[in-house]
Nucleic acid binder design. Structure first.
Lengths: 333, 333
DNA sequence: TTGTACGCGTTATCAC
DNA sequence: GTGATAACGCGTACAA
């Protein structure tokens, strides 16, 4: 059942049917009714593939996530969906697993005119590749940033956030502070380590490599990394984790070994997700404005979709250190 | 840059280029090389839209999730992706928010030949509608089931699982058991309440409506529902929750009010996600084989894609009651 | 106001 | 082995 069949049944031409579908004014009311009736009775819906072939707007965008496991991304997604829906766009999601080939294949859907554009969280491709792609296709980044002149992005200042978190832990009286970070060499991970080290330096605390714990952001990585640090001769008295999930694993280790978070060990997470809220005690965390970042990402993308030459914007949003029970001053919570 | 350009540059015809692309044997080695070189140097990739227009395989399927928040779905997704990747399919995801219109719009992508098929978790549409859709398009369900003769699905026996969990709580000596369930009237929610009530009956415990707590599966719903039940004159001594996230909120309430999970109150969750493992104490939960269900869902879908008349299968998988620290016998964990 | 004809990128068919 | 061409479903410029 295609547009031709409808035209036949409505005793008119494909052009007229197309006009009816696309709300073109210049079609007689009588004809319109006849066409609408036929469409109704046959249950006809235009094949989007035909339109895509014409390189028109598809009304769909893609969000590329590195993983589904972090609730921060669910919040970002909600923000994207909110703005997308208001502008008549559907949002498709895919899971790149931080894999270069998968990321490429999905981005290709944009290139192949299947989608209007894409929002990328945590890229696997190089800055150069991304920039080249963004020069030709609507692409923006979110929660991470890429150098290069063609990609708009929105993110927080990871260096400053890590500095503030570490500084806060020092202010609570901690001198030995562990950092459990991801080991993917991503820009935001590097930034966070930078901020951590800057806070140590500015407080005249010596940086010790042994206090760095690595992780793949897997389920028990926080737990395992914490064990390694706690088995040191002089274990840290505070831990700064690069995600709430890591912090949750850390808490588990700490509590299982008879210590109280917020009393014996201070713990700070990252992202400010519900995980941090639901743990007991709840976890002090750097809260990223996921929902806002999602909304802004879509708006930036829409600008690029509507105008290929739209000016590139880099939006850095405010984060917030939310103090909860896993650090001393709030232990009573 | 399309197939025509390549043909021109390689000094041959579009037909031959198409043959090279599709690994057709009958093309001279010399010609093939020439074409491959041109494709290489131009970085040409076939536009999938053209193929889609011919009603061919698109190599893409869609997974419709009710929400991103439940880690169970991430596991299901991993299973789907594993089998999909092995069969050359890309997996797109979308978030229906349990909304009828959104679900319909995305399913339409399948109808409109944009995708090869869809896997649906938690439908918003009626059984009849879904069945009608499935009669014409490849569609399978996962983690929930639909009556009707055209939909293959895979899920667990929710009634039996709820029965076992409730029975287990009774076996621990509990007589007043609360059920915190979703309030969407979904089949699996109804099944779980049935199992809960059957366990009470078979142990001669009177069912009390006041021990039913509702929720929207939101962040603090477990916490709030728990408060309502705990403020009753005779509060329950055990709580069975319809998700791990709910159970986590329940634990929080319990601990904040000076009671110990697994000692003063027994708590059982549902799904067996990492949330249950990472809490302290960790949470006893009905573990759904998410990864396996995901894999099987894809296999069922592939059968339908490859053969429209493939026989409908209903796969019920084994669940597992995993005992952890939130219930008495394991409180020492 | 309506209809005809073309083009989008690809593959299948058929003739050479 | 190769190439010309029809076909897929749609929107639109242009003609009527």
């Amino acid at each position: 059942m295609n547009i031709k069949d409808i035209a036949l049944l409505a005793e008119t031409s494909v052009a007229t049917v197309s006009r009816v579908i696309n709300l073109d004014e210049r079609v007689a009311e009588k004809t319109r009714q006849r066409v609408l009736e036929v469409m109704e009775s046959t249950g006809y819906k235009p094949e989007l593939v035909g339109r895509a072939l014409l390189g028109q707007q598809k009304g769909k965008i893609l969000v590329l996530l590195p993983t589904m496991a972090n609730p921060l991304f669910a919040r970002v997604l909600a923000g994207v969906e909110h703005r997308a829906s208001a502008n008549g766009y559907d949002v498709l999601i895919c899971n790149t697993h931080r894999d270069y080939d998968i990321e490429k294949r999905y981005l290709n859907m944009v290139r192949a005119n299947q989608l209007d554009g894409a929002i990328l969280l945590t890229a696997a491709a190089s800055d150069e590749e991304l920039d080249a792609f963004a020069a030709l296709n609507p692409l923006v980044q979110c929660c991470s940033r890429s150098l290069g002149g063609h990609i708009s992005y929105t993110c927080i200042d990871d260096e400053a956030a890590a500095f503030e978190a570490t500084n806060y832990l020092i202010g609570l009286g901690n001198q030995r502070i562990g950092l459990i970070n991801g080991n993917f060499d991503r820009k935001y991970e590097i930034e966070r380590e930078k901020g951590y080290r800057r806070a140590l330096e500015s407080n005249k605390i010596k940086f010790l490599r042994q206090y760095l714990g690595e992780s793949d952001y897997n389920l028990y990585d926080g737990y395992d990394a914490c064990r390694r640090l706690m088995e040191l001769e002089h274990p840290p008295t505070a831990l700064f984790c690069s995600s709430d999930q890591l912090a949750c694993g850390v808490m588990k280790y700490v509590m299982e070994h008879g210590k109280r978070p917020g009393v014996d060990v201070d713990i700070v997470g990252f992202d400010g997700t519900y995980i941090a809220e639901l743990c007991t005690p709840s976890i002090t965390s750097i809260e990223q404005p996921g929902y806002e970042m999602g909304k802004t990402s879509f708006d930036l993308l829409l600008e690029r979709i509507q105008d290929k030459e739209a000016i590139v914007k880099r939006v850095v949003m405010a984060y917030k250190l939310v103090r909860r029970g896993s650090t001393k001053e709030c232990a009573a919570e």
